[in-house]
Amino acid sequence: MSMTDEYQPINCDDYDNLELACQHHWVLTLVLREGETLEAKASDLFSRKQVEYLLVEKDGETRELRLDHIVSFSHPKIGTIEISHS
């Protein structure tokens, strides 16, 4: 990821689904823009320097994922959500 990579906000409905996942600490299957797929527990959403992040936990470690770098996420209660940008 380059430092000049300008943040592209995601659709509000997609954000709301991530917020729901964080509230329930759901384990999501996430597909990232770089091709990586991971399963991790959704913990929190936060913003830093006008960039939004999802904080996830996996195997006792936390990781920050830029929302605009998530291609899709899924959980049995919400199905698969393909991220769209606002």
Rank of each mutant, 00 (worst) to 15 (best):
R63E: 13
K77F: 08
K58Y: 11
P9H: 02
E6S: 15
I83K: 06
E82D: 14
S86F: 12
V56F: 03
C12H: 09
P9F: 05
G79C: 10
H85I: 11
E39V: 04
R48D: 02
L67R: 05
D44C: 07
T37H: 04
R33D: 14
N17D: 04
V51P: 02
I78P: 00
F46T: 01
P9M: 06
Y7T: 03
R33P: 00
D68F: 10
N17P: 01
C12F: 10
T4G: 12
D5T: 09
T29D: 08
V56D: 05
V56A: 11
F73P: 10
S43H: 01
E39T: 09
W26E: 04
S47A: 07
N11K: 14
E6I: 15
L55S: 09
H75E: 00
Q23L: 10
H69F: 13
N17V: 03
P76M: 07
H24D: 11
Q8L: 14
E34N: 15
P76Q: 14
V56G: 06
Q50D: 14
T29R: 12
V71R: 13
R48Q: 07
L67C: 04
Q23N: 12
E34G: 10
T80V: 13
K58T: 09
A42L: 07
L54Y: 03
A40L: 02
E82F: 09
S74N: 10
A40Y: 04
Y7W: 09
R33I: 13
E61N: 06
V27L: 08
G60W: 06
A40T: 03
L55M: 11
D5V: 05
S72C: 08
R66E: 04
K41T: 15
C12Y: 08
